[in-house]
Design a binder for these strands. Structure first.
Length: 641
RNA sequence: GCCGGCGUAGCUCAGGGGCAGAGCAGCUGAUUCGUAAUCAGCAGGUCAAGGGUUCAAUUCCCUUCGCCGGCUCCA
């Protein structure tokens, strides 16, 4: 007779069972209904299968399918089913790894032939067959030696490589319907649990993510507990595609990246340029208000500047080749900092002068490999909203706090009030002294704490020259985009021998802070555009109002309305084309113009306009003065949150 | 850079070894109209570029460029 063990439940209750009782039996005993939604259990902090036998006193926590861990297990099991299907359909395929990821799962295969979209359909179909069979996922623990032989006999060399790296003596394998995989688990009880999945893509991926290794074939997929959730996800993906900034950029005539100009080089069209210049105007105004000094620096400089800064050595692969100018080598600038340092050094600086804050919308050029270019997101020439602050060590904390508040004010002005904030600390390879690093990290932390913002620490993720704070904006679809960055730099002041004269009359080295609020205008424009799906905030809309005539009889009045709007600095257009009103409304709507002002005989007679918003609602006819006042309210930045 | 897909009119896309197609946009004309597409006509092309196979290539093959999805990278 097995001895009794004590099983404790999450609510603190406990009950005794015979040793060897499975987790499933325990769940069934407490509440039969649990078995419908629970995919695995956590025993003393460790996730295991429902078939796990309990042999000692334990704390048990059910993992339901709708928990993050439950969904991961669900997707991971789906990836195993996919691997089985692939192995059964294609000869000569070797399996590697197949984890669950944020929105689904993938499995990497070493396949003699690349997969095609048609193959995906076949694989999906075969997966359905496997699911229908409802075969159990069976766990077994075997010795490494046996495992090596097992996978060796199957020719699974990647699995052998993985086994050899497992420190434990025993490894676990999972088997379903004759397909065996090396896996830590846990898994669903059986394949029939999989209710809704879809294979979403094929891509190349290096074995173990290393360029030096063989390129494998990765199949991406996703799975949800219900068909409805899957459909919702797929709908969201479609929505994201609709607001793709490359598509909107073309449709709304904002910018283009032309083959003839060169990959990764952006031409801003008039409508996009309006938005950008409004952003820049706002940026400049706010920088003066926040005690920055705005500067301009050249686009090329002698390569020696970059040798001094260290960029030449560290980032050679991302810099453009030098051009010969009267026997001297020049390059286009990949960074603005050395110029700012030059301006700082154009005079002897006193401790009384600090902090000095130089800001520049500086356009830089970096060589990005062709495969990484992506719309405005990843380009070869971009404009940083850059600034460098030179301060004394005891000013660091205040400066960081100031920058943080400034950043949030700017982001909120553009309607972003949802962020993830990270503090990255000293990496393994670093310059500067430990003491300085600690002081700087603390200054960043205290400043963050003062603002009361939630932040996470990313240990060891700082840049080699100093710790940093990164702010990621969350957009309306919940996607996070790196934009603001605040970095302390111990390296450049030293390399350029930057100094100030202290109270003691001696030379001291200032601390330098690099910071970008929006990152680059291109990138910022990208997530701004996608966040609003092209329906810009009124103060940034390229066209704020368009006057639409009902018939040509109203042209003269329409022109008067248009002129009046322009006089009041409202960006307006007028559409007097010989088209039906519905046609003009549709076009204006597609252009996402915030206000359409319909003028027909009725309006002309009463000297009013009938506004319609881009969301489709019509407002009561109002006088032009009232409309101008109405729009005027929206025609300025209004920080949210 | 690597793996795979793609490149046809301004845009979205069909086609396919033998005369290059549609819708929208454009132009011309008719229509004078009330909140998401009025009608008709016209015009629009080195089928990404270069090379090869072929009697014949936009179509098949190779190379280059670019774009898309990933991988790697991202001060």
């Amino acid at each position: 007779m097995a001895h009794a063990i004590k099983i404790t439940f999450p609510d603190g209750r406990y009950k005794e069972y015979a040793a060897g009782t499975t987790a499933e039996a325990v769940l069934k005993d407490i509440d039969k209904g649990l078995l419908k939604s629970v995919v695995a259990v956590q025993i003393n902090e460790r996730c295991v299968d429902l078939s796990f036998s309990l042999n000692e006193d334990s704390v048990i926590k059910p993992i339901a399918i709708d928990l993050k861990e439950g969904l991961e297990i669900y997707r991971h099991s789906t990836s195993h089913v996919m691997a089985q299907a692939v192995k059964e359909l294609f000869d000569g395929v070797k399996v590697t790894i197949g984890p669950s990821i944020e929105d689904g799962f993938y499995y990497d295969f070493d396949s003699p032939n690349p997969f095609t979209p048609e193959d995906l359909k076949r694989i999906e179909k075969h997966m359905l067959d496997i699911i229908k069979k409802n075969k159990p996922f069976e766990r077994a623990e075997i010795s490494k030696k046996d495992a090596l032989k097992l996978f060796g006999d199957m020719g699974e060399i990647y699995k052998q490589e993985l086994i050899n790296e497992i420190p434990e003596e025993k490894v676990s394998i999972y088997k379903q319907d004759g397909f065996v995989d090396l896996c830590r688990g846990p898994h669903l009880p059986s394949t029939g649990w999989i209710k809704a999945f879809k294979l979403t893509g094929i891509a190349g991926a290096y074995w173990r993510g290393d360029q030096k290794n063989k390129m494998l074939q990765r199949i991406y997929g996703t799975a949800f507990p219900t068909k409805q959730e899957l459909d919702e996800y797929l709908y969201k993906v479609e929505e994201a595609k609709k607001r793709d900034h490359r598509k909107l950029g073309k449709e709304l005539d904002l910018f283009s990246i032309s083959d003839d100009v060169g990959a990764g080089l952006v031409c801003w069209h008039p409508k996009g340029a309006v938005v950008r210049s409004l952003i820049e105007d706002f940026w400049k105004k706010e920088h003066y208000k926040h005690d920055y000094q705005i500067i301009y620096t050249p686009h090329i400089a002698k390569v020696d500047l970059w040798k001094t800064s260290g960029h030449w050595e560290f980032y050679r692969g991302n810099l453009y080749s030098p051009m010969d100018i009267e026997g001297q080598d020049f390059i286009v600038k990949p960074m603005n900092c050395p110029f700012h340092i030059q301006i700082y050094q154009s005079q002897l600086r006193s401790y009384r002068d600090l902090p000095i804050r130089y800001a520049e919308l500086g356009t830089v050029y970096r060589f990005e490999r062709s495969g990484v270019l992506h719309g405005l997101m990843r380009v070869r020439g971009f404009t940083q909203d850059d600034a460098h602050i030179f301060c004394r060590p005891n000013q660091l904390e205040d400066e960081i706090e100031g920058v943080l508040n400034f950043t949030l004010y700017i982001l909120r002005s553009f309607g972003f009030n949802n962020y993830d904030i990270y503090l990255s600390t000293r990496p393994e390879k670093f310059v500067g002294t430990l003491d300085n690093w600690t002081k700087a990290e603390n200054a960043l932390r205290y400043a963050l704490e003062k603002t009361g913002l939630k932040f996470q620490i990313d240990p060891g993720e700082g840049v080699f020259y100093g710790p940093k704070i990164d702010i990621k904006i969350k957009d309306v679809l919940g996607r996070a985009w790196q934009c603001s960055t605040i970095q302390v730099d111990f390296n450049l002041p030293q390399r350029f021998n930057v100094a100030y004269r202290g109270e003691d009359g001696k030379g001291h080295q200032p601390i330098m802070i690099h910071r970008a609020l929006m990152g680059s205008l291109e990138r910022f424009f990208f997530f701004f555009l996608e966040h609003y799906a092209g329906a810009f905030l009124v103060w940034l809309a390229p066209v704020q109002a368009i006057v639409l005539t009902v018939t040509e009889k109203n042209n003269k009045y329409a022109q008067e309305v248009f002129d009046a709007l322009r006089k009041q600095d409202i960006r307006a257009e007028v559409d007097i084309r010989n088209e039906k009103l519905g046609f003009k409304v549709r076009e204006a709507q597609l252009k996402k113009i915030p206000y359409m002002l319909v003028v027909g005989d009725k309006e002309e007679e009463k000297q009013v306009v009938a506004p319609r918003t881009r969301s489709g609602s019509t407002l009561e006819p109002m006088s032009l003065e009232d409309f101008i006042r109405f729009v005027g309210e929206e025609n300025k930045p209004r920080p949210v949150g």
